[in-house]
Amino acid sequence: MMEPIFFYGFGGLAVVTALLMVTRVNPIASAVWLVVCFFAFAALFITLEAHFIGVIQVLLYAGAIMVLFIFVIMLLNIGAEELKARTMQFSGLLGGLVTIYLIVLITLGLLKNPVRFFEPLTEGYGYVAPVGRLLFTKYLVPFELTSVLLLVAIVGSVVMGKRKL
């Protein structure tokens, strides 16, 4: 079976790139590592038979959002001279400890439950057609509401972008 290989491969890639993203000094480097991380995520999604979402992940996150990020970083033109110490002294240590402890706690909590295996799936699971059907039938109202949300976001960012209100 290929699944463990995919899981450990892409899972490991995601963890490593995420760690790199968090620790880089230069925001551009962080952004690029995050793009890689999102590719790994997309691969994991596809491993979970979520083909449509995997594609959307690449298109939207890696393609659109991260481009926006890099664009802003470029726009703000944060040169090397403005780079400062990466973290705050005290909270860096405390934050690290807390994060590790959080991971341990969640893992322990999950391991207390019995292991749940995946069942075989029906044909066509995770394709565009069934997900799209759900979107336009059962989840029509939330789907339409997201369009309102996007409109609000557009108006909001336009307002933000204006120099003077």
Partner: peptide, 18 residues
């Protein structure tokens, strides 16, 4: 720092769950 306090709170609650 507020967030850090918040996370510490989450940890404590999870401690109670686990």
């Amino acid at each position: 720092q507020y967030l850090l306090f918040f996370v510490i709170g989450v940890v404590l609650i999870l401690w109670g769950f686990v």
